[in-house]
């Protein structure tokens, strides 16, 4: 026998091998673990939460279906409406300042400055301290009697005569919380934007320099447009984190004074667990979903791959 007459003989594959060659089966097998995890850890709690929002469940009593009753009563609820308003305000104010300061820090760190790595480490600090711990620190900073801020302003600098009651009046408490959130959120913004800045080729700045661009023009025409894609991602995440914030507010003010600093998340917890109105708490939590979807959609469109970016065609 020579090569021209030789025919390869194959033994027919057995049943198991054929099964694994069958594409639909293979897809199901490969997807199963991921789907299972999603189902158990994501879909079930979310589904349960949404279901509870339409019942009058309380702790210890599985409720029955009440339709939109929870939402109807929330629409009349001053505390809830106030929480919605404050959540939006809190998110907007904190995000604006976080981005302004974060971008400024990132630009600073992107230059050659002395002690760069130490400064970078210091900036990361708020991020690595557990939130509850820093909340307790802020609680002390904002204490009416022992506040270090009041001490400095009154006893050291003599700029004021009286100690500040940071958490005693609604507006003071609101701004105090926003300041704490900004402090907590800046590292994330600064470090991610710094990573974004470092992807911009220095040659582009040199080209712009030779083209006659001033520092401001380089920022405006080179840095900003090239940073936009990453800025949009960071903005989305920052808005989502801030909107759903719970720990800082709950640890510092618990929603007080007189419910003026409740965020939707803290109010939902307050009503659902200590107040044992599970159904109502769930309804408040569910009411956050449209806001979050809206924020995500907005940033999705802002994020939409820009024409100039690398990647598949998108016209």
């Amino acid at each position: 026998m020579d090569a021209s007459t030789w025919v390869p003989t194959r033994t027919p594959p057995n049943l198991l091998a054929r099964l694994f060659d069958y594409k639909p089966f293979l897809i199901c097998v490969c997807l199963a673990p991921a789907l299972g995890l999603l189902l158990v850890f994501l879909t079930y709690p979310l589904g349960l939460g949404i279901w509870l929002a339409f019942t009058d469940a309380e702790i210890g009593r599985s409720g029955s279906w009440v339709g939109l009753e929870n939402f109807d009563s929330l629409m009349e609820d001053r505390v809830f409406l106030n929480a919605v308003w404050f959540t939006v305000f809190y998110t907007a104010a904190a995000t604006v300042v976080k981005f302004a300061l974060g971008l400024w820090l990132a630009l600073l760190l992107n230059h050659h400055i002395p002690f760069k790595s130490i400064i970078r480490a210091i900036i990361l600090m708020p991020f690595i301290v557990p939130t509850v711990l820093s909340a307790i620190a802020f609680w002390w900073i904002y204490d009416p009697q022992f506040s270090i801020l009041s001490y400095v302003l009154v006893d050291v600098l003599h700029w004021r005569d009286t100690y500040i009651d940071f958490l005693g009046t609604p507006w003071a408490a609101r701004w105090s919380l926003i300041a704490a959130n900004i402090w907590r959120g800046i590292p994330f913004v600064a470090i991610t934007l710094l990573a974004g800045l470092q992807t911009i080729s220095p040659a582009l700045y040199e080209a712009a320099l030779l083209d006659g661009a001033s520092p401001w023009q380089r920022f405006r025409f080179v840095t900003t447009p090239l940073l936009m894609p990453i800025l949009a991602v960071v903005l989305t995440f920052s808005v989502l984190f801030t909107f759903t914030d719970f720990q800082l507010v709950y640890a510092i003010t618990r929603g007080g004074p007189i419910n003026s600093t409740h965020l939707m998340a803290t109010l939902a917890f307050q009503r659902g667990i200590p107040g044992s109105q599970l159904g109502e708490g769930a309804a408040i939590a569910v009411a956050m979903i449209p806001f979050l979807v809206l924020a995500t959609l907005l940033s999705y469109f802002a994020l939409a791959r820009r024409k100039w970016q690398q990647g598949p065609e998108n016209e």
Binding site: S201, A203, L209, L210, P225
Partner: peptide, 28 residues
């Protein structure tokens, strides 16, 4: 540099990726 009245072509071209060809040339 911008007062020296020179123009440079870089090895990796350093074109502004977010500008069209027209805008790249018109930038200066």
């Amino acid at each position: 540099p911008k007062e020296r009245d020179i123009a440079m072509v870089f090895q990796n071209y350093a074109l502004y990726p977010h500008m069209t060809v027209r805008d790249n040339m018109a930038f200066s």
